[in-house]
């Protein structure tokens, strides 16, 4: 089983990030489970989402305490909290433009990308989730394809104008190309 945790603030696409990845995994033949935890507040408030994917039926529910992958959409949140439960094997994808200032220890598995800037260029809004998903899918290339990620983006955003869908797909592609 692969367990993923997404941290960010309400309005930055945290929930959608988990949902789109869940869809992409589902389309790639996985059993999936994605959900979000939040309080009564909405935009700007800390929010955490989870995805579990497996070839076998998934039994566990609730908070992901031992994440295989952590996606940080907002670098202004508390890193101690966001990295909770991570080990040296946990892959951490961070959206940041100030890597040096973050003072991250154990940074071998930390991959930093300025996804907000890419999102502003492509989508025109500071919503970095599809960029980060492109990055993640590149890492999981044998399991979940970029095509299925694009299909998931189309499905999730189907109520939006074609322009928005294309921009998000473009953002995902750029993220996909950024993986080092």
């Amino acid at each position: 089983m692969l367990e993923i945790r997404v941290h960010g603030r309400g309005g930055a696409g945290v929930k959608s990030c988990a949902e789109i990845f869940g869809k992409a995994a589902f389309l790639s033949g996985f059993k999936t489970q994605d959900f979000s935890l939040y309080g009564a507040e909405r935009r700007g408030a800390p929010l955490v989402s989870f995805v579990r994917i497996d070839k076998e039926p998934i039994l566990e529910r609730g908070y992901v305490t031992r994440p295989d992958i952590i996606i940080v959409l907002d670098d202004s949140l508390d890193f101690k909290h966001m990295l909770n439960g991570s080990t040296e094997h946990t892959l951490v994808l961070i959206n940041t433009s100030r890597r040096d200032k973050l003072k991250l220890k154990n940074s071998k598995n930390f991959i930093c990308v300025d996804a907000t800037s890419i999102a502003l260029e492509t989508i025109g809004k500071p919503i970095p989730n599809t960029v980060m998903l492109g990055l993640l899918v590149k890492r999981l290339k044998d399991k979940i394809t970029l095509e299925n990620l694009e299909k998931a983006i189309e499905e999730k955003l189907e109520k939006y104008p074609e322009k928005v869908i294309q921009a998000n797909k473009q953002a995902a592609k750029i993220g996909y190309g950024r993986f080092i």
Binding site: G22, F26, Q33, F35, S36, R61
Partner: peptide, 10 residues
């Protein structure tokens, strides 16, 4: 609530 109401699964 949440653990089913907001959890997407097949």
């Amino acid at each position: 609530g949440f653990i089913l109401s907001y959890t997407k699964e097949p």
